[in-house]
Design a protein around this nucleic acid. Structure first.
Length: 286
DNA sequence: CCTAGAACCTGCGAGC
DNA sequence: TGCTCGCAGGTTCTAG
């Protein structure tokens, strides 16, 4: 499932293979893949034609392709199963191919958006003065952004009446963290996922942020995570960071620190993995 | 305003 | 063999 490191790998692939090319034509094969483009599939395709792609950008799990002629960008979100593939024209269509973008050059490749579960999609938006697509102005900077404000994040935690994993997944507080890296960072920090944030101290917040950054950088270093072959990078190569996971998916397996069997708990229509010894639950449980 | 939880989707694997 | 059901989960919307 693409979180920040996987999306960054895709962004780098797009920078290598798609930037500075000119759109010849766009084919929308499933309207849901452009549902965020309110004017519809035909408008999306029409407005992309003839446009020049700039340098791909990313914030959290969102990435976008600035268009060089105007102050607009093609926004992309991979959802849970989305892939952006650069394929030869001759490659057979993927089963879940949703959008195809052809270019006005002789490189012989095209950009494809493939998405089984259709939670992701592409859309075209005006940019804010900061160069951000306007519809994601509510998304916070991510922890690998040099301008991420650690102190502001800490104060937000203190202000909220919520629990730490909810806060880590709140993209308006900190972006790019998903279920997998949240569990990994909390395990490294020895913090239970239901611990209230209101009484976090600066050192605790700082240590947790350090672990979030460490686990993301480690994933980036090996090109992202892949669990079920749904996620592949822009050239279709799977990552392999999953072999390094310490918490996620390890129910019943010994904690890599203390040997206690790891547990899985249903949480928010998904799962939380944790070590019951290293990550003690808060006294007052919701 | 704030927080909790459901809905959106499809494929896969377990269990009957 | 073939069916049902739980599970995967990022984001947005709604309910309280």
């Amino acid at each position: 499932m693409p979180e920040l490191p996987e999306v960054e790998v895709v962004r780098r692939g797009l920078e290598r293979w798609v930037a500075h090319r000119t759109v010849a034509g766009t084919e929308v094969l499933h309207p849901r893949a452009v549902r965020r483009h309110l004017a519809g599939p035909d408008d999306f395709a029409h407005r992309l034609k003839g446009r020049h792609i700039g340098t791909p950008q990313r914030r959290g799990k969102y990435l976008w392709l600035p268009l060089e002629e105007t102050n607009e960008s093609v926004l992309a979100h991979l959802g849970m199963s989305g892939q952006l593939l650069v394929q030869p024209h001759s490659a057979p269509d993927e089963k879940h191919l949703r959008i195809r973008v052809r270019f006005a050059d002789s490189l012989g490749t095209e950009l494809r958006f493939v998405d089984q579960r259709t939670f992701g999609g592409l859309s075209l938006h005006d940019n804010t003065p900061e160069g951000l697509p306007d519809v994601i102005s509510h998304i916070a900077r991510d922890p690998l952004d040099p301008l991420f404000d650690d102190e502001a994040f800490h104060q937000a935690l203190r202000r909220k009446r919520t629990t730490i994993k909810r806060a880590l997944l709140d993209q308006s507080l900190i972006s790019g963290v998903g279920n997998i890296y949240a569990d990994e960072a909390l395990w490294r920090a020895r913090i239970h996922y239901e611990r209230p944030t209101a009484h976090f101290t600066r050192p605790v917040t700082a240590e947790l942020l350090g672990h979030v950054r460490d686990v993301m950088n480690a994933a980036l270093a090996v090109g992202g995570t892949s669990f079920d072959s749904l996620y592949v990078n822009v050239n279709g190569e799977s990552g392999y960071f999953d072999r390094s996971l310490d918490a996620y998916g390890r129910e019943g397996l010994p904690c890599k620190r203390c040997g206690t069997p790891m547990r899985r708990r249903p949480w928010m229509n998904r799962s939380s993995y944790f070590c019951p010894k290293c990550q003690r639950p808060p006294r007052v449980s919701s």
